[in-house]
Design a binder for these strands. Structure first.
Lengths: 356, 356
DNA sequence: CTGAAAGCGCTTACAG
DNA sequence: CTGAAAGCGCTTACAG
């Protein structure tokens, strides 16, 4: 058995045997203009005519062509969701799914759909990504700053449709929403310090979105409060994946003077750290404390459950979409306050073995 | 500071100050038809004219209007990705992200974009979901059968654009691709049985896609081979979330004659089972063996790492997209073979304490 | 309240 | 090789 799809025309032809507005008009003995009015719930149609037209529409199962509508109304009810990424790993992040969920929820209330577009770095002028931005397909765009958005800020700024960034978009006028990365990292590091840790390792990423710079800044600030400075030898780098966190942790723990705690800048890398500890026979948190960032579902399911900084992925998505709709409506919208992060203390942090 | 977005027209107007094909034609001293030819890389344009037009295009930064193009070509280069779901939990599934990744990879090779549409059950004729299917926005659709697709099979079958289901779509002619759910569950249960387990619990879901029926069928078959039957008291139900798996596990483990092994029909619920065991002070796998399904990234990061049935999410997405493109190209495509699943034995399964 | 006409910005035969 | 004309299926003033 083979599958085929019976197409009416020579070219694949969405719309199939759908009647046009002209046929509906003919059947209802009115003009297309009048049909258009009832299609768009506009006044100035007698109830008799309206009823007649509605009956014909119901009988024929007519659905107006969006494509034609877009051409005249200049509104597609489609939002572009642009996610640049380097590695496939990054696209595997549950945090991204949370963001999408938030955007989708907000978009749903306005009957908007999401057009997903990804792009491998480096993003050049010829990429699908840039082409979409310059096209008239979408009414607006939300860019998830999974990479530093800086390199293509120019393209974003000069594109025709309004756009907002989930991230920082620093040095540009592009509206941005982000979580309190600095504050979250500050709180997490203070927590470790309060437990008595003095040698704290960190796992950042490369390439890294600006959010991670903020986290590192928060961590340094907390260390500074305690009169400490970050030992640069304890600053490792991953690519957001669990495997990279595991590798980075092995590097850190193999040092002559290893850290007693590791702050991984996302939960997936933190889970890799936990795995490295397990492999080395280290007990968590007795031999090693671990803190993550994001609070993805995985975090609370690890054994012991992961201490982490909760970041409102859903809220970020929702806020970004709401901001974008504000721009689309032409109202001046206040930049949303930085969304709060929250330290969630669970089982992977405790006093260091040597005593606090 | 407030954000605004400067719109040229009264209505939000993607396209902004983009010139039209007529202006390009005028600037290049040719007709729009000729510009169209070079835009579409068609022959029969003298190289001089072509060069002139290309220069004007480059100078003006002209990008042709997709909306107008769609109306005449009847091809939008957009695929609908339809994900019906009941709970937000379901949309939080990393397995879904894997599927999307596969679809996206395949779509990228054809310069197609993905339009994401979700829908809450029950799906009625008026929902955004159905409206999208009946519209001419998309060239084709991929439906992820996260719920039983049966209730709206009719809507799928009569829609204008070709469509494929990732799942079973039983009793319908809709092309479908799915993993070997039956075989995977068979292998997992055989593994448990070989270790010596005799009381094996299961956690299915409600509502459940047909794939889970297949898994249950595979499990029953393996039990049958061993001369056993599934004790219906050991068949629990969750909603795919870790929390629901945890609750179901507590129910099972609180039974007078509890199971020595639990087969959760997805990894997220399996992680909940591990958590329930941990809470109850049960050691895994000594006191309780656990098997999951999917092999999401989380699986190998649990401690001990989860024994599970690997399902090729990426491959499913890719196969579905390839199948859909085949239909779009009008070639008769063979239904892809059921994609293989694979039992991945890790740390959560072992002989029962009582001995094998 | 209703309809004729023009327009949205492309592409597609067809004639030259 | 090039262009005039019609058409894709709607919506939008405008006149009646």
């Amino acid at each position: 058995m083979f599958y085929t799809w019976a197409s009416e025309g020579p070219a694949p032809m969405a719309g199939g045997s759908m009647p046009t507005i002209d046929e509906i008009a003919r059947l209802a003995h009115v003009s297309p203009a009048t049909v258009s009015k009832v299609l768009n719930n506009r006044p100035y149609v007698s109830s008799a005519t309206r009823a007649r037209i509605e009956r014909v529409i119901a009988e024929t199962g007519f659905v107006p062509s969006q494509r034609a509508r877009w051409l005249s109304t200049r509104r597609s009810f489609i939002l572009g969701l642009l996610v640049p990424y380097t590695s496939d790993q990054l696209f595997a992040d549950p945090h991204l799914l949370e963001i999408m969920r938030g955007i989708e929820a907000e978009a749903n209330t306005r009957e908007y759909n999401l057009l997903l577009s990804t792009a491998r770095a480096p993003i050049d002028a010829a990429s699908a990504f840039t082409r979409l931005l310059r096209s008239d397909v979408i009414d607006g765009a939300i860019v998830v700053e999974t990479l530093d958005v800086q390199p293509f800020a120019a393209a974003l700024a000069q594109q025709p449709a309004p756009c907002v960034v989930i991230g920082y978009a620093r040095d540009s006028d592009i509206p941005a929403v982000h979580a309190d990365d600095y504050g979250g990292a500050l709180a997490a590091t203070r927590h470790l310090l309060a437990l008595g840790h003095r040698r704290v390792g960190a796992i950042s990423s490369s390439p890294r979105p600006y959010a991670l710079d903020e986290r590192l800044r928060g961590m340094r600030a907390a260390l500074g409060e305690a009169g400490l400075a970050l030992d640069e030898a304890l600053l490792a780098t991953g690519d957001f994946s669990p495997e990279s966190g595991e590798a980075a942790a092995h590097g850190l723990l193999g040092l002559p003077d290893p850290p007693s705690a590791i702050f991984a800048f996302n939960d997936r890398m933190a889970s890799g750290v936990a795995r490295a500890a397990w492999t080395r026979g280290l007990s968590v948190p007795d031999d090693l404390s671990i803190v993550g960032f994001d609070d993805i579902a995985l975090a609370s399911m690890l054994t012991p459950p992961l201490t982490t900084v909760r970041q409102p992925g859903y809220g970020l998505g929702q806020a970004a979409a709401a901001l974008l709709f504000g721009l689309l409506d032409g109202v001046a919208v206040p930049p949303p306050a930085t969304l709060a992060t929250e330290l969630i203390v669970r089982g992977t942090t405790g006093p260091p073995k040597g005593g606090g």
